[in-house]
Amino acid sequence: MYITPLVTTILFTLIHGIFSKSVELTFELPDSAVECFFQDIEKNTSAALEYQVITGGQYDVDVKIEGPNKQIIYQQQKMQYDSHQFTAQQTGIYKVCFSNEFSTFSHKLVYMELNVGPEKPLPGVGEHATVLTQLETSAEEIHSALNRIIDHQTHHRLREAQGRKRAEDLNERVFWWSMGETLAIVCVTFAQVMVLKNFFSDRPTVYNRM
């Protein structure tokens, strides 16, 4: 049996992709809609959910995590961003729902990250029984520190996206509003003069008959 390196790469990637149970998604949440995601979690595995609303309305969303027996693990209303860590009490399907039901017109953009279980170790690492050398421990520490940096970066990236989208909105609004107002002023000017002239004109018009 011969497998080309390309196929092996694809296979490896597939295995890796399916195994690592950490997923980051940014999705659109239309008005008065509910979006649910399901995840199979084994007993005694810790899981963490992190979410943030990027745009739309008051930047808030209702969030709920439900366990296999419909018990509510976490429930928050009108949250802008939060994270929640929990340990699965039993094996089964866990449900994470984002609801925009309270809002009738604002369409939202929501980011969420769901991490299940510990990070998958590097291949070969942890297989040997010897104590870690200082170098290995340092590498491990740097790795977790970098992971934290990436998390913080994501958070800031989303906050920045929030600010930027609002600024773009404002810019557009200022533009259209000023256009509208200029037009309104010009219209009102001519209308005022016409009406006033009509009051004093000799010919009977709609205005001086009133």
Partner: peptide, 15 residues
């Protein structure tokens, strides 16, 4: 291993 993994399909899902 790939086939086993595909049987389990442990990734997140939605409807």
């Amino acid at each position: 291993a790939l086939f086993i993994v595909f049987d389990v399909t442990s990734a997140l899902y939605f409807h």
